[in-house]
Amino acid sequence: MKKFDLIKLPFNKENPITVQVLGICSCLAVTAQLKPAVVMAISVTVVVALANLIISLLRNTIPPRIRIIVQLVIVSTLVILVNQVLMAFVYDVSKQLSVYVGLIITNCIVMGRLEAFAMTNKPLDSLLDGIGNGLGYGIILVILGFVRELFGRGTLWGYPIIEKLGLYNIGYENNGFIIMAPMALILVGIIIWIQRSHDKELQEK
């Protein structure tokens, strides 16, 4: 496989969320606003890329019977580092993300890529695969965060864009429902619908 494909494929044909259906929990929970979504996307990308690299370097020395626990230890160490960095530099966002930073440990994307790719491939390829999957996950988070913040609160990155455009004066109202939990699920359903009607290969059965 070409190196460039490792980065490119997760954006569309092998997207972790819409095609592989991994890592849904955090994708839905942190996307009520754009800023936490972007921070979460960066954190997950860093963790997947580094975990992939480390596991790939160690892949010949890990006994297969205890590989899950070794992976968990490496991933949770990385997540603790990310958590400390977030608390030090963007404290307000880290409060908003609450338990979902810790839950990167059990994010299925991380474990899935470690099992499916890093255990059998070279370090450089694994690093690229990690970056690609992290970004493919990130793009869905950014789309969801953008839609939900714009239509739910009328702001983008905290900037009151609808108010500045003067749409409230002509009778526009925010759709508060879209920042509630169930709408996130329905929005992901719609994204999957759009993607699969463009790309017939991805349809099931």
Partner: peptide
Amino acid sequence: PPALKGVGITFIITGLMGIAFM
């Protein structure tokens, strides 16, 4: 619809169940 089969429709139904639980 063929594009919604499987995962897509499951997401939407979970969303509707979530609304009921609200």
